[in-house]
Amino acid sequence: MFQLGRNDLLPLIEFADFSFKYLGADSLALRKVSLTVEEDEYIVVTGPSGCGKTTLCRAINGLVPHFHRGYIAGNVYVDGINTRESTVAQLAPHAGLVFQNPTNQLVTLNVEKEIAFGPENLGVEPSEIRRRVEHFIDLLELESLREKHPHEMSGGEQQRVAMAATLALQPRVLVADEPTSNLDPKSAEKILGILAEFNRKGMTIVLVEHRLDLIAKDASRVILMDNGQIVADGNPREMLSSSVCAELGIGIPKATQIYMKLEKRGLKLGRVPLTGEELSDLVEEASCS
């Protein structure tokens, strides 16, 4: 699906001792972050608000340091490209970013133009642009909004448009900063379902989220951040049942919380559940044994 000749020996994203401080800020937003992301991963990044999650996202698509300026040390490579030596536009087909605040992302006068904007700027064939516009209007259920001005849309509608516009770039890596925060739960579930499907088809996903109840089941890896650093990184079940989450005040899925409470009472269920169904199944297994 994604064919952009690349060096398969390199990781898709690599942070090498990367630090960043926004112009005028007193402290570093990222402190010596080292991280590699391989193709096909679905990474959920979480941590207390203000810990550097958004800066991490911006560093992947080049908004840091090219749009948000500041002090910089270390390097970020995306598809083998050093983001310092590239432009945001050159990075666009490699890494697409869905902003935390959709109002800051939407630039055109209606949904069709918004979705076409990215591919047009990448020089995609007009017939292919038309195909993508229709495809993503359909996929994200934007038909009724087609002619609406983005600034007349609700926060949730804007988020769906921003997601469509970013997916239309067909990036190798989709970076999404709390992309469902303004959506009602059913719409959020739909979008997360769409992202999981893209991941199965080979798109790498880096997603920032506080609501792990909704997303932990889709992730292949969870990264916990605090104070500009990565403090833990690994398998979702291990990460969410670790003491680090409790120390940072991260909201872990209720099913995982119950599992941990039961464990404290001496009731072992064997595996860490991430959803209600999984917990119920584990209780069933335990009651049969």
């Binding site: 059913k186 899925p253 209600g276 917990l279 119920s280």
Partner: peptide, 20 residues
């Protein structure tokens, strides 16, 4: 009507109720 999904706790309770 409100496009709400049931919270994970209630999902757990419902799943448990089906088996037990």
């Amino acid at each position: 009507l409100c496009s709400l999904t049931i919270p994970q706790l209630t999902q757990t309770a419902r799943a448990l109720h089906r088996t037990f």
